[in-house]
Design a protein around this nucleic acid. Structure first.
Lengths: 312, 312
DNA sequence: TATAGCTGTTGCCGAAACGGCAGCAACATG
DNA sequence: CATGTTGCTGCCGTTTCGGCAACAGCTATA
């Protein structure tokens, strides 16, 4: 079922590996064959597609345009294949997800588990990374679905849904703040805090708020792992800041208490976006999972925000 | 710049012409070559793509799936080509429009003329047809932009915009009704009327309203040409029914008067939809024209509806 | 019923494209 | 300076593609 010219496939491999010889190894062909196909492509397009550095190849502007087209073609080929397969039998294929750490605690495992009971031949690949890396993985075609903090997203990605969750403080059950319903940032900063490093998006959400305060005390601990921050908070080391999503149901019977942040009377939101490459039609089984993901996240959004309403 | 395998192109040609030999003539190759490529494709997909009738070929279910993929590929190739071209110089290409007759009077010619003063190398192909044919032409990839009466549209088309215009009666200046601001259907039916044939969408808009009336008099004249109906009305033959869009500025200095229809106190709307194939990214110059079309139609919608407000 | 005209398919064969092997120059790294 | 990497290029066998002609199946017309 490979009815597209070798040039397309070879170009795609060279773009991904950044080298002709590496692409040749990947494709199990001689490097000369790959080299010639690239040269032929460049001749047909009428413009160089790669810049030849001593240590590999980099895309030119025209090359990036072609890469976009080739990605559209190959991803749509993928969809076509799965469409034909689903015509005669069960769904089967792989859903590739790129997401930030907050999802790994309950949302994603619950969802994948429940989805696999219904569609057993659909497997999953999930990779955890930073928000900007999530978007980049999508653009490069390395993931089908991306979940990240919703910053401004590039035009070649489509924001399927946008869900807001309250940012809050995470403290041990014995912590002096633990009895409050909500907390302000000032109240937290009176205690030792566990700050996120700039590579986590929580940093970028809190930084502007902290900058507004008159005094900015030194953070006790800085970390780049949501998990580590949570465990530190549970041991009473200090106050951590997270979305409630990342804590989920553990907070009920565990040492942790989640206190929604209150900034001058209004909540502090963390916007979670679900992304997909814009120029793409998803295979049916991927689309189905996506719908379910959006629905589940919407459910969580509703529940968690209702729990902290003025009249809740 | 033809870096896609011949099978793709041949398949596309066969689908369009419905015959291998006709496709071969179109492609300037021997019919045997085309036949072999189709057979090879069917072998690779693992399923027949066409049903062989004595008088040509018809797509099977799998064939339709492949046709969809191939269309996506070729249309995106087209976009890539125009993107590369626009990189080094002026926009050039062709915008292909399928629309219903109402647009040809003023909206489309005005828009095309003004667009060509700014982008001289962009040419236009417009074809007038019925609403359902507009959607079909889009699905078959024979048009880039479609404008039709907004009925329920298939999922593979995207409704870019939806504009509502008032349906009204069209009478000669000397007609007894001509002095009214608005008219009801009953009032019109007291005179000879020029009815649309079922192939025009006006028929489907008026039919349910006429069916509600107690008496349904015989129509004086039936026609399938908006133009003919307008000319007949101008000669005082009877009352025609149209959207104001189809009359436009001519009504000012001509023999015609447009009277918005009043149905039990509320206007009768004719919804105009602008459509595009969903699984497609338009070339930049096409997208630009599309935006302008939507803007202009929105402007007309605002103007014409404001002219008949209760307080206007 | 016979004929003419259309359909898609198939051998045969030359031409074009593809791909593997080995060797080249250019650059980076040690 | 030696070694390992990069991409590129003759040479040549294999594969694929495409044109020509002939074939069988069907339809419409005479």
């Amino acid at each position: 079922m490979r009815f597209h010219s070798p040039s397309i496939q070879y170009f795609h491999a060279v773009r991904r590996t950044g080298s002709i010889r590496a692409a040749a190894r990947l494709l199990n062909v001689a490097s000369s064959a790959v080299s010639r196909q690239i040269l032929k492509l460049e001749q047909e397009v009428g413009s160089p597609l790669f810049e030849r550095n001593a240590r590999g190849l980099t895309l030119t502007t025209v090359g990036e345009m072609l890469a976009r087209h080739v990605m559209n073609v190959l991803q749509d080929l993928d969809r076509f294949r799965s469409d034909v397969a689903s015509l005669s039998g069960v769904w089967h294929g792989t859903v590739s997800i790129a997401c930030i750490e907050s999802l790994t605690e309950s949302v994603l495992p619950d969802l994948i588990a429940s989805h696999r009971t219904r569609a057993r031949r659909v497997s999953f690949t999930t990779e955890v990374m930073g928000s900007s890396d999530v978007l980049e993985a999508l653009r490069r075609g390395e993931a089908d679905i991306g979940i990240a903090i919703a910053l401004r997203h590039p035009p070649d990605l489509r924001q399927v849904a946008l869900k807001r969750f309250r940012l809050g403080a995470l403290v041990a059950r014995e912590h002096p703040l633990a009895r409050r319903k909500t907390v302000t940032l000032e109240q937290c900063l009176a205690f030792p805090v566990i700050h996120a490093l700039p590579e986590l998006s929580i940093y970028h959400l809190l930084q502007p708020l902290i900058a507004q305060l008159s005094e900015t005390p030194e953070p006790a601990i800085q970390a780049n792992s949501i998990d580590l921050m949570r465990e530190l908070a549970a041991r009473g080391v200090g106050v951590a800041f997270q979305t409630q999503l990342g804590i989920g149901r553990l907070s009920h019977d565990a040492q942790l208490v989640f206190l929604p942040l209150d900034n001058a009377g209004s909540p502090v939101w963390s916007d979670l976006g679900i992304y997909v490459r814009a120029e793409r039609t998803l295979p049916a089984f991927t689309e189905s999972f996506l719908q379910e993901l959006v629905r589940q996240l919407g459910e969580r959004e509703r529940q968690e925000n209702a729990a902290y309403q003025p009249n809740g």
